[in-house]
């Protein structure tokens, strides 16, 4: 009986660690710019919105801005649409899309909300 328990426990532990490892790879949808360059599919890159500056692109039909991923790669992101309203407050931005030459052409832009719950402006 003892031995059977031990074998059972070993199987459970192995199963859990296997699930954990499988989960680790699929848990995050976000990749780096280097991985995005390798990929032929639409991928999501999460980066720091370092300059906090959005410029016009394609004669004003779209926008462009720079993102820096975790590995420190800085890439110009272009997007054929208007910037999300809250992008000026964003610290990080997720762009879904793929490389187009040296630029990253985004199909969707997601904005990370601030982690600090502070008051807007000064409270009187």
């Amino acid at each position: 009986m003892r031995r059977r328990h031990l074998i059972g426990i070993i199987i459970v532990v192995l199963a859990i660690s296997f699930c954990g490892m499988a989960l680790r790879d699929s848990l995050s949808p976000y990749v780096s710019f280097a991985e995005a360059r390798e990929s032929t599919k639409i991928v999501q890159v999460k980066g720091d919105f370092v300059d906090k500056k959005v410029s016009l692109w394609d004669e004003g039909r779209g926008i462009s801005f720079f993102l820096e991923d975790e590995e420190g790669t800085r890439v110009r992101v272009v997007y054929a649409g208007a910037a999300p309203d809250n992008i000026s407050h964003a610290t990080s931005v997720v762009v879904a899309g793929q490389y187009q030459g040296a630029d990253f052409l985004a199909e969707r832009i997601l904005v990370k909300c601030p982690s600090k719950y502070q008051v807007e402006g000064d409270r009187q």
Partner: peptide
Amino acid sequence: VPPALGLG
């Protein structure tokens, strides 16, 4: 509750 920075 005051509006929050970036969230309003």
